[in-house]
Design a protein around this nucleic acid. Structure first.
Lengths: 207, 207
DNA sequence: ACAAAAGTGTTGCAAGTACACCCATGC
DNA sequence: GCATGGGTGTACTTGCAACACTTTTGT
């Protein structure tokens, strides 16, 4: 019954950060600068500091360069396999984050389409898979899909974004009906500009 | 940038173990034998051992006395507030478990109805609340409700169990229709015995 | 003129909800 | 005979899925 029986693992927060870019769901990856898995693509992550809440670690990891303000994030799952890190025992508390298309992120990480992922280090491929499943599952019954949108957007843009997340086409009339019925958005009095088509009404997320 | 900036927390697995007893949803609690919160009711939990997967810790905590065999359990959430344990930083990876009514559990813990909980130590009240919410939410669209049933059971018993979890009455005909339609159970050729009423067909969980 | 997106209703199907009576058994 | 649970069907409502055309604007 000595304390070395008990794990005192390091704890990282690893982020699965999604955004919709060029009509595709993408995720942020970073090329690891050091061993293990040096040169391999991995999820951005960081060790939890001494008196830091997990939520704060998540935000710090994401916003180490630019101040991104409030970013949607929710805890995904805790990965605790004893061998998931070859050095030592490291618990990973994974978070799912979503950036709007006008986010202004300028960190070192690179966007990859989720259907064209490179090989990932650690167990990060599994983490991404869990995150994608969760994101798709929650799209239909929560407002999580709005997190990808800028402050003002048209319903057509919103639909494109959802189609990118689900990777399948949606019916325009049914989509608009359900968005309105669920009161996820509020209409503004403004209209979009430009483009070879009629002006579309602009909407905002419902506060 | 020295290592003491980084947390090396102890990690516990705390279990929210449900069962249905006397037509009520109940949860296992243990009276803490030591400080902090000595004498207060808390969730059963234990520190994660050096090379032990989290799932294994969960099972060990639950089955420290009797061998319970396979017990339903799923990871619930990780609670990481720096002040949640007054001694030191302790991460709690909470699990939700469900015991069948013929479980044979004989550990030191005591069953409490979830609508009559005593004051709980640490942040365990919050953990229980999250677990109850998750259990109720999953009842409608998964087979989690069957985990409370013994090997063979009648549809009437199953309905009573669901009503206990949801804390509200269900319509008998609609309940039976949906159970059959979802193919959650398979009929056996056997019938119940005893009781001042006709014999009921016995069912099993669908494998 | 043509290409591109905006906007707009109806119909059918499936799933869920409400609701009542007779039967077998034990006491 | 009375209390207890077993077992059964129909009608209504609601949410989801399929489906096509006209209008505005830029090139």
């Amino acid at each position: 019954m000595f304390s070395y029986e008990f794990a005192r693992p390091a704890v990282t927060v690893d982020l699965v950060t999604f955004a919709v870019r060029d009509d595709a769901l993408t995720v942020l990856l970073i090329e690891r600068p050091e061993e293990p898995f040096k040169g391999t693509w991995t999820l951005p992550g960081g060790f939890v500091h001494d008196r830091e809440p997990l939520e704060a670690t998540a935000l710090r990891v994401l916003a180490s360069k630019a101040d991104l303000g409030e970013v949607f994030r929710e805890q995904l799952f805790t990965f605790g396999d004893p061998d998931r890190d070859p050095r030592d025992r490291v618990l990973s508390v994974a978070y799912l984050a979503a950036l709007a298309s006008d986010h202004g992120y300028d960190g070192p990480a690179t966007w990859f389409r989720v259907d064209e992922l490179p090989e990932l280090g650690f167990d990060h491929r599994k983490i991404v898979d869990v995150a994608v499943e969760r994101l798709r599952g929650k799209l239909s019954y929560t407002g999580i899909g709005l997190e990808f949108m800028p402050a003002e957007f048209t319903l057509g843009e919103l639909q494109k974004s959802w189609e990118a997340v689900l990777d399948k086409p949606l019916d325009k009339r049914n989509f608009r009906k359900s968005i309105v019925a669920r009161e996820l958005v509020v209409a503004t009095s403004r209209k979009s500009r430009g483009g070879a088509h009629p002006r579309a009404r602009l909407y905002r997320r419902r506060v």
